[in-house]
Structures are given as structure tokens and as C-alpha cells.
Design a protein around this nucleic acid. Structure first.
Length: 475
RNA sequence: GGUCCCGUCGUCCAGAGGCCCAGGACGCCGGCCUUUCAAGCCGGAAACGCCGGUUCGAAUCCGGUCGGGACUGCCA
């Protein structure tokens, strides 16, 4: 039997990292089993759904590398894969269930229902305990599914094992509202049945809804699907990863220059592992090893620090050409303008050094601004730390003098000149080079000094040494 | 309140009765390298929530307990 899985985001916001992780696991499962991955849009909430969010969600999925075989935009044998176009079908199913006796109309008022719930709760029972089929059979109001009371609902969850729900703890839930629109339970279950979904892997928050979906599918005469309830993701504060958590949307990572491969790798590690040792692995390796049964059952905290580290690993693994290509927009953003060919050449000479010390792409830009713009001011803490020492002016003065005499302006030529100088002056390289670094780059932290000077050019380097001198000893 | 889920280093994951006085990764601490910062290398601190039971033997099985979470809508 062909494995058919789906992800069904609601276009009421950006793609949440939790949804992205669920999509990723579904995708891995489909790919591992040569199955079909489907993207369906659950847009029954007409008020809050927008085309912009839908486009953003699809773009995020593609960015993550999760291509789908059937679904919205790519099509398939089941129409639009958008719930908003299937209301007739949902109504049809609801009608059939009523006709077959599995569901019934209920026109009781919210107040009436509220009282029944309060009564049940007061007795320590399930809130919906007394919400059962009323005596009348008038065909008005909402439609509820009638929960069969004869036997417990049991299913084998791929990640949690056997889960049992007693029917007395289940209430007759609404499947079609009195305005004729379907509830989530109906729409989702009908789609899963119609699209012949074989495995439903979704967040653990839907575990309590699963018996409802099973009963609904059963009432429709459908074969049961397998379920896998994935552990929830939490923020570093230990609370649910909500929109309040700054980076809860996948688009944030895309926009801030994280690498798709790194985010994929990191997300796949939340609740799953390739083996006991491997942390960095490719999509292909993940596909080869993935199984929903291996997914951990306990919730995970999303750690931005580890993601950043992993992103750095992937950046370092990039080819030099690819690194320059990816970093281009960030460098130009940091400099504040578009760079010319000569400037890119300049950047190219230090790119490999920058690549080594970059975890997040925007950092790369910050490291090289000094190459293109005369900074307005020095980083004050760097200046204080380095320039306050005795003899600094002497070092810079001497360096300026000696560098002026260098004709072939290359790192290999600059290095012996400065090293020789420090040796003669009896100053250690650590102490001696820092003032030059601050003078030239404005910071006590920068790419290696000799290469930086070489890339900056002789004239600019000398100019900055003079400028630092002027600040040290204003005349 | 009720139902269900979860409980191994600060965090993510490995562990499916002896290989575990618990392993890998991030982070943290120390060292090496070094031109700063990174990277790299070496080393370190750091966990089986608790109590019982089963067993020759338990992180692994069972019960209880405590703690956390989800759900409890004519939201999804």
C-alpha cells in the first residue's frame, strides 16, 4: 500500500516552526517509503485566512526543501486541495451521517449547553457528559456525531503506543455548524478519507481529538488511518512556542539568512535522531533512516543557540563561491550600498577568512564594513581596551613609517615588515598588533590583520593609522 | 475539576534487563594552537524526579507518587 501523508496548514499566519517540523517529519516519512506527500490548505476559518499567508507558507515549505507530490498549486486527482472549495462535500457527508443515524440535529442554545457542561463538571465528569441526542428529531440547528457507547476507542499511535479513550469521556461533538459550515473535525476527517491518507502525523495537541476523528471515519465507513502524535515544541522559557516567541515563524529564519540545510537538519533533531552519534547529516541520510516509530514522545525545547552553531557548521561547509553568493545581500546591507566589481574583488580576498568566523550571514557583513567605508567612530570598548596602553602611539607611528616603504602591497609582504618591527622594538605580537587592528578596522575583533590591510589597500591603511594617531595625540 | 500525554546532563538526542559507576551534540569551564575573534584539537563539570515491586541483575518492566504539558467550543 502506498504511503500517503499530508500537512494541512491554516493560512492564518506564517508557517510556525512546529508546523514546519511536522511537515518535515511527514515529508521524511513519505520520501523514505516512496510515498506521496500532500499539502492541503485548511482555510475553513474564512475570517482569518489570507492569500498572503498561504503564499508565505508554501514558500517556506519550498525553502525548507519539502516538495509535495499532490496538493495546492501542484494539483492532483482531488481538486484544489483547499477546504474552502469543498463545503458541499462536507455537508453531503454530514447529511449522510444523519440519514444513517450516526449523527443528529441539535438546536439547543449555548446557554442550555453551558448548563449541562457545568453540571457535568460539578459532578467531576467530562464536561460534555450530558450532551447527548435530544428527544426531538427536528432538522434544525447544528449536527452532532453520536458517540457509540458500546466500546472504548483504541488505537496504536506510532510514537505513543496504545492509547485508549472511554466513550463516556467523549461528548457528541459538532460536525456541521447551524450555518452549514463544517467544523475542523469534519473537514479534516472527510479530506483524509477522500484523499486516501494512510498516516496522520501531527502535533500532540490533537491527541484528544483523535478518537473523534476515528469515530467519524468509522461512521463514514472508511478504513482507519495510522496516527503518530508528535511531541510539541516549546520556547527556551519552557513555555509553548507561541507567536510571542520572537522566532516562532520559519520565515524569520529564511529572512535572517539561515541556511535551509541547517534549519532542516536542526528541526529534524527535535524529537528524532539519525543515530546515537551523528549530529550533522544531509536530507538524503535523514530520508534513508527515518521512521515515525523512532520519534521521541517527549516535548522538545527549541534552542536558537544550537541552531546558530549548526548554521555556522553549514556556512563553513559552503564552497567559497557559494559563500560569496549567499553573503552578498548581507554585505551590501551592512555597507549600506551596492558594491562595485573592484570592491567585490577586495571582499573576495578575505572572504575565506570571513567564512570561517560566521555563524549567521548578517555577521559576515559587519566584519567587512571597514573595507568599504571609513567608519565614523571606533568601537569604544575596543579603543579603551587597546589604545590606552603605554607606547601605542609609538607602535603606530613606526608601523606607518615602515609600511609606507612597502611597495608590493600583499599580506605576505606586510607580515614580515610588522613582525620584524615588533621584534626590534621588543614587543610581543599580541600586544603589538592589536593597536594596529583597532586603527585599521575600528574593532579589536576582525579578520586577520595582514590580510585585512592588504585588502584595504596601502593608501587607506596609512590613512587610518594617521587618523588613529591624531586621536591619540591631538595636536 | 475531568480525560489523555510526558518525565535520562541547563538544552536536544542515544539507551528497547546485564555492553551504562550511562554515550553523542549545543552551551559552560580549563588547556593547546594563535595576530584579535572565530575555527580546530585536548580535557573537565553536568542527568536516569521520588518511593515501592518484579528480577541473580532495572535508566530500561510493573504499581504508586510528585512534577510538567495538551485538551476540555457551533476555534483549529
Amino acid at each position: 500500500m502506498t504511503v500517503r501523508v499530508r500537512i494541512a496548514p491554516s493560512p492564518t499566519g506564517h508557517l510556525h516552526v512546529g508546523t514546519a517540523r511536522a511537515a518535515l517529519f511527514n515529508w521524511l516519512y513519505a520520501r523514505h517509503n516512496d510515498g506521496v506527500f500532500i499539502v492541503r490548505i485548511d482555510d475553513t476559518d474564512r475570517e482569518r485566512s489570507t492569500a498572503e499567508f498561504e503564499a508565505d507558507i508554501l514558500e517556506s515549505l519550498r525553502w525548507l526543501g519539502l516538495d509535495w507530490d499532490e496538493g495546492v498549486e501542484v494539483g492532483g486527482p482531488h481538486g484544489t486541495y483547499r477546504q474552502s472549495g469543498r463545503y458541499d462535500r462536507y455537508r453531503e457527508v454530514a447529511g449522510q451521517l444523519v440519514a444513517g443515524g450516526a449523527a443528529y440535529y441539535d438546536d439547543r442554545s449555548p446557554e442550555e449547553l453551558g448548563e449541562l457542561r457545568a453540571q457535568a463538571q460539578g459532578e467531576g465528569r467530562h464536561p460534555g457528559h450530558y450532551i447527548r441526542r435530544p428527544e426531538t428529531d427536528a432538522e434544525v440547528g447544528a449536527i452532532r456525531l453520536s458517540i457509540p457507547q458500546d466500546s472504548p476507542v483504541t488505537f496504536d499511535d506510532l510514537v505513543r503506543g496504545t492509547v485508549v479513550f472511554e466513550p463516556r469521556d467523549l461528548d457528541d461533538f459538532v460536525i456541521l455548524r447551524s450555518d452549514g459550515t463544517p467544523t475542523y473535525h469534519l473537514a479534516s476527517t472527510v479530506d483524509d478519507v477522500d484523499y486516501e491518507i494512510t498516516h496522520v502525523a501531527r502535533g500532540e495537541d490533537l491527541l484528544p481529538s483523535t478518537p473523534k476523528h476515528i469515530l467519524l471515519a468509522r461512521a463514514m465507513g472508511a478504513t482507519e488511518v495510522s496516527y503518530a502524535h508528535l511531541p510539541l515544541l516549546f520556547g527556551t522559557d519552557g513555555r509553548k512556542l507561541s507567536k510571542r516567541f520572537a522566532a516562532a515563524s520559519l520565515s524569520v529564519y529564511r529572512d535572517e539568512g539561515y541556511l535551509s540545510d541547517a534549519v532542516f537538519n536542526y528541526l529534524s533533531l527535535l524529537g528524532w535522531s539519525l543515530d546515537a552519534e551523528t549530529t550533522i547529516f544531509s536530507r538524503a541520510e535523514a530520508i534513508a533512516a527515518f521512521d515515525l516509530r523512532d520519534v521521541s514522545s517527549n516535548p522538545a525545547i527549541f534552542d536558537p543557540e544550537k541552531l546558530a552553531w549548526m548554521n555556522g557548521e553549514y556556512i563553513r561547509a559552503l564552497s567559497p563561491e557559494r559563500f560569496v553568493e549567499m553573503v552578498t545581500p548581507y554585505v551590501e546591507a551592512a555597507v549600506g550600498r551596492v558594491l562595485g566589481p573592484e570592491e567585490w574583488q577586495r571582499f573576495g580576498s578575505v572572504a575565506h577568512l570571513v567564512q570561517e568566523r560566521t555563524r549567521l550571514l548578517p555577521e559576515a557583513g559587519e566584519q567587512v564594513v571597514f573595507l568599504f567605508e571609513d567608519f565614523d567612530q571606533y568601537d569604544e570598548s575596543s579603543w579603551e581596551k587597546v589604545m590606552a596602553r603605554e607606547g601605542v602611539a609609538g607602535i603606530i607611528t613606526e608601523a606607518r613609517l615602515r609600511l609606507e616603504a612597502v611597495d608590493n602591497w600583499k599580506a605576505e609582504m606586510i607580515e614580515p615588515v610588522l613582525r620584524g618591527m615588533l621584534e626590534e622594538m621588543g614587543i610581543g605580537t599580541g600586544k603589538g598588533l592589536q593597536p594596529l587592528r583597532v586603527a585599521v578596522t575600528g574593532f579589536s575583533v576582525s579578520p586577520p590583520l595582514f590580510e585585512s590591510m592588504a585588502a584595504l589597500g596601502k593608501a587607506k591603511t596609512l590613512e587610518r593609522l594617521e587618523r588613529a594617531l591624531r586621536r591619540l595625540a591631538p595636536s
